[in-house]
Design a protein around this nucleic acid. Structure first.
Lengths: 334, 334
DNA sequence: TGCAAGCTCTTTAAGTGTGACCATTGTCTT
DNA sequence: AAGACAATGGTCACACTTAAAGAGCTTGCA
């Protein structure tokens, strides 16, 4: 690894001359500049980023802490983050909390000691249920944090949220009003998360407005969720629409409906949540709420970059990224 | 951010005393040690990692460069990498090449200037087709690289590969010998990748050994791959088994077979490639080749850590992670 | 003509936080 | 009194940036 010092020695000039020449400073003569840049190119000199970081106390690195990468929604968000950061010459250090509070805390501890300029985080399930926010509070005093999707309202930081309530409310209303469905079932495996609660609320409100009785099938930690769904459908043969609030159970329900020889979408409509492969693995292609994970990642990164690059501390913002109802083959209308 | 210098000032001792006290050096008196550690805890002192990195010229960070995170296989591998690195107190900087050679080069350029101690990479599609390996060669002179899955044989570095050939060979043989299938179709959307080529070879060999004619349906960049599959199945009604060599077309084929009113697995057996959600989105649960992405990530990380922590340069290894045939509902036997 | 002032180019020095290494001080033992 | 030893301090290096100082030249004006 060639350094400024070595270049300086070879050229018989001082280190600072080399440094300035390479940054094209007006203080340095054209002649010297040329000599320096030529040798630098020849020896393939690249400034050592660690030294630059120490000097400037900026790393151009963002810490991204997510519960999982196997969940395609988070994978998509992280992709959006990476793309945006890359466009601004920032790197990202990814930590996976595995939904564990302790792992999340450890990541924040490790990275907050100069390793990153800021954080983008979706809080772990355990953090949300235990509501332990100390690690966020201490870090946010010195380092900007942006939360997305899984958000803690009482942490003072910028946030990017999805309009969970509204989206599911609209989806439910659509099924009631446009497709005249009357017996709508909601399937959930995430009702202990804030996003899950919001989605269930949206469904419940739409149902109550239509004076229908809401029914929610919870699937947490079921060994065979598909069989639970199948049993439920058999025992409640009047179900004529299903809303799933995660990316997987909608497709599962679609397969189970086929098993009891009902037709989708004629007998039963289904709306699920989007993920990258949902249009490939379901037949007919499932109608979904598209959460715009990439956009969420993009927005989070932009928000953080704004905070990092503005000298005067900006006020924390909360941005809502609108989901989109994308109707395909498991609903009747387009 | 409190520093050694500040602690020293507050305690009226020198910086080096504080430094030694905190590293529990025997040179420092118990009394002083106690005073120092107490104040350090009180002020929540954490050594600045950037400074440590500059001093030691080690970052304890690994650069991970993958073509995509939306591909569940890579997401799984990255998860394995993160877990293993975390256990050794290493962090990871993730870059997504998006299958682009140029983006991959940029990532290597940026990170190889002191930012990371080593790399784990699955090479981009474009890199593999254009066979441009300069960025690997120049970096590998100073920084260890481990390649996984998508591997370049002529780059001198450690590798973690999947036994693609053998796995598909065995899967094909299983269908021929144990289930007496005679008209086996292979569906592929990755045949330009080295892994795809190997898998097709495995299938072809097994078919030729049984004196059956191999037939490969290629789906690259198809607008409606499902319809192509459907059409093929209609026109070739003698097909009695399907092997898919990616994570998605197997499930797609399963859905299409259902459409032509054939029974899986009685009329047609299907074997696909595993991914995290495949058992949830298919009905019956698809029989798969399980690629052990987590294990691959783990192995790659361990290999790299070995190289980083051994003083004498170790010889490059190539480790094969065995896939596993996991038979579920789309084949006849267990 | 003399010399201060100004200009261009370059070097010196200080600083970022840490830690290895060596030096210094003081106390105690023999 | 000298050596042993414990405790602490000082210096330098890591690679880079940058403010300030300095060197060497030209210019302008009395």
């Amino acid at each position: 690894m060639v350094t400024l010092k070595e270049l300086a020695k070879l050229l018989n000039v001082s280190v600072s001359t080399v440094s300035k020449a390479l940054s094209d400073s007006s203080e340095i003569g054209e002649n010297t500049k040329r000599r320096v840049t030529e040798l630098a190119n020849e020896l393939n000199y690249k400034p050592n980023r660690i030294a630059q970081q120490l000097k400037s106390s900026k790393t151009k690195v963002v810490g991204v802490v997510v519960p999982s990468l196997m969940n395609p929604f988070f994978a998509e968000v992280v992709h959006g983050i990476e793309t945006t950061l890359g466009n601004h010459n920032y790197d990202m250090t990814v930590c996976i909390s595995n939904e564990s509070l302790e792992k999340e805390q450890r990541s924040f501890d490790l990275l907050s000691t100069g390793s990153v300029d800021g954080f983008i985080v979706a809080v772990a399930r355990e953090t949300q249920t235990k509501h332990d926010i100390k690690h966020f509070e201490s870090v946010s005093r010195t380092t900007p944090i942006v939360m997305f999707d899984r958000v803690l309202n009482d942490v003072a930081c910028s946030k990017v949220v999805v309009d969970d309530f509204e989206t599911v409310y609209q989806a439910t209303k659509y099924l009631i009003q446009e497709e005249s469905r009357k017996h709508l079932l909601l399937i959930s495996n995430i009702e202990e998360l804030s996003v899950g609660k919001q989605r269930i609320k949206g469904y419940t409100k739409a149902m109550e407005e239509a004076t229908f009785k809401p029914s929610v099938l919870k699937l947490d930690d079921e060994l065979s969720p598909d069989e639970v769904i199948l049993k439920y459908l058999k025992e409640n043969s009047n179900i004529d629409a299903i809303i799933s609030i995660d990316h997987i159970t909608g497709i599962m329900a679609l397969n189970m409906v086929k098993k009891i020889d009902k037709d989708v979408p004629n007998d039963i409509s289904i709306i699920g949540f989007d993920y990258v492969d949902s249009k490939f693995v379901s037949s007919p292609k499932i109608s979904v709420v598209n959460q715009k994970g990439f956009k969420i990642g993009q927005t989070s990164a932009e928000l953080l970059l704004d905070e990092l690059n503005s000298k005067n501390r900006v006020k924390h913002k909360t941005i809502m990224v609108k989901s989109q109802l994308s109707l395909n083959g498991t609903t009747q209308k387009k």
